[in-house]
């Protein structure tokens, strides 16, 4: 049981590194989709002791939205925005991966020192969650394109979800559905925003957006 959970958490961490290290947008979107599917699996495995119908349905909805729907939306946004397929990082990929390693060490330290009301099933739970959050933040700040920032935001949200799974075996249905809806709408809006930005300015470079003002 513990082995399966550990394996899923390791895969989650590894997809995080894939996201930090890959130079192709499509690979990044696929990685974040795989992460979403893994989250659904994780939720199922964690509560496999006492499975309830709502739990299973929630996990399945989560996996479908995060693993299929959102990647499809992102792929669409990528196509509509007609952007190049490279990621365009501000720091090199090697440096990103190294920074990721640093974040992993940091999250292991935090995981060891963080006091939780109930001990999570696996001691790698909290480190994996915090690493995913930090790696998501890193993707947001270190990539040029608006669409990679959406991907980073999704990853960050995945980390929050893992943390939630670690702390409370079962969140209230309404809360969980609400979060899911939030993310879905968020990505939907961002996808449209990315499309409009690219149509208005012929690019989705977030750095150049900062220099927009009226005083030309």
């Amino acid at each position: 049981m513990n082995q399966v959970i550990d394996s899923i958490l390791i895969l989650l961490t590894l997809t995080g590194f894939v996201l930090l290290g890959s130079s192709r947008l499509a690979a990044c979107i696929k990685a974040v989709g795989i992460q979403g599917a893994l989250l659904g699996l994780l939720a199922l495995v964690v509560q496999s002791g006492d499975l309830s119908i709502t739990g299973v349905v929630l996990a399945l909805i989560g996996a479908t939205v995060k693993g299929i729907l959102l990647p499809v939306l992102l792929f669409r946004a990528m196509r509509e925005a007609d952007t190049t397929r490279e990621v365009e990082p501000l720091i090199s990929f090697n440096l990103s991966v190294l920074a990721g390693a640093l974040e992993l060490a940091m999250s292991l330290w935090i995981g060891r020192h963080l006091r939780l009301p109930a001990d999570p099933v696996s001691s790698f739970f909290v480190p994996a969650a915090i690493f995913t959050i930090l790696a998501g933040l890193l993707v947001i700040v270190s990539r040029r394109k608006a669409i990679t920032q959406v991907i980073g935001y999704l990853m960050l949200e995945n980390g929050v979800y893992v943390f939630g799974t670690a702390v409370a075996l079962r969140m209230p249905v309404l809360v969980e559905l609400g979060i899911l809806l939030d993310v879905f709408v968020g990505v939907f809006v961002m996808g449209i925003a990315v499309f409009h930005i690219s149509r208005q300015f012929d690019h989705i470079d977030s750095l150049r957006l900062a220099s927009l003002n009226d005083r030309v």
Partner: peptide, 21 residues
């Protein structure tokens, strides 16, 4: 290639961490 080797280092570091915890 350095990225690939860095990935390998990450894999083994993660393995070490999982064993050592």
């Amino acid at each position: 290639v350095p990225t690939l080797l860095l990935t390998a280092a990450m894999l083994s570091a993660l393995a070490f961490v999982m064993v050592a915890k």
